[in-house]
Design a protein around this nucleic acid. Structure first.
Length: 271
DNA sequence: AATCGCGCCTGACGGC
DNA sequence: TGCCGTCAGGCGCGAT
């Protein structure tokens, strides 16, 4: 399940293969993703050159000489670079074929992902324009999060998973960051003091940057663009560890549903 | 304005 | 073995 570290790993993995490549063809085998892949995508892209690849939150932005492809990997999406003669898998929905006879291939069994097109100013796209700051940027700091958190009644876990507050924190890393910060996921956001908000900001930055270094987290189906899994799951403290001992105090890790999401935490270490 | 719950979708898994 | 129900979850959207 790609969260920010997995998308970043993918972005870094595909960039050297795509940069300055021409696009000779686009093959859409399954247009029904979260939103329909634009029917005009192939016409827009064919003959263009890829000029840069960026990430904003969990969105990948592939800039070409004619406009930008905006991709989201949803729950189960992955991108690979393969020779264009490689036989597609059942869930390989889209190929962007390059002049080097390889293609960028999108696989997404659950089809929660998206492939969109924006002619110019991709950051102004409706889905991107209201996103919160990047968690690893200086704009995401204690002052910002504290201010945003005042008078909010929502539980802190849902708050940090809200992409309008900060991008890229999905369920896995929200659980992990709250554990590191010693904050119980169910606490009302507005009741957390500045010092603890600062700790939470530090914990989010720490867990995300460590996960990027490890190449992401592979629990079910994530693999990097070279097909290798990530290794951050070995460093998970609480996620998927219900009934196991807390690595800090030895008490049993609790699992409870919170807004239809699994929250894992230690009742002793997280208050 | 903030919050809540729904729905999209497939594969894995457990129970019978 | 095979069938079926349940769960997982990002996130936009409509309802409250």
């Amino acid at each position: 399940m790609p969260e920010l570290p997995e998308v970043e790993t993918t972005c870094q993995g595909i960039t050297p293969h795509l940069l300055n490549q021409g696009i000779t063809n686009v093959i859409v085998r399954q247009a029904k993703l979260r939103w329909a892949v634009p029917a005009s995508l192939a016409a827009k892209l064919t003959g263009q050159t890829i000029v840069s690849i960026n990430r904003r939150g969990k969105y990948l932005l592939i800039d070409t000489t004619n406009g930008t492809v905006i991709m989201h990997l949803g729950m189960s999406g992955s991108l690979r670079i393969v020779p264009s003669t490689t036989e597609p898998d059942k869930h390989d929905h889209l190929d962007i074929v390059l002049t080097n006879h390889h293609c960028l291939r999108l696989r997404d069994p659950r089809r929660f992902g998206a492939v969109l097109w924006k002619k110019e100013n991709p950051l102004q796209h409706k889905l991107l324009i209201n996103l919160g700051p990047e968690p690893l940027s200086d704009a995401f700091n204690g002052e910002y999060l504290f201010k945003a958190s005042r008078h909010r009644k929502i539980a802190i876990k849902q708050f940090i998973m809200n992409s309008h507050i900060v991008v890229g924190v999905g369920n896995i890393y929200a659980n992990e960051a709250l554990f590191i910060a010693g904050i119980r996921p169910t606490i009302g956001t507005g009741r957390i003091n500045r010092q603890r908000i600062d700790q939470l900001v530090g914990a989010i930055k720490l867990v995300l940057s460590k996960a990027i270094k490890a190449g992401g987290t592979t629990l079910r189906d994530f693999t990097a663009s070279d097909g290798r899994p990530g290794y951050f799951q070995q460093q998970l403290n609480v996620y998927n560890r219900n009934n196991e001992p807390c690595p800090q105090c030895g008490n049993t890790i609790i699992l409870r549903q919170q807004n239809q999401r699994a929250s894992y935490y230690c009742r002793h270490c997280q208050t």
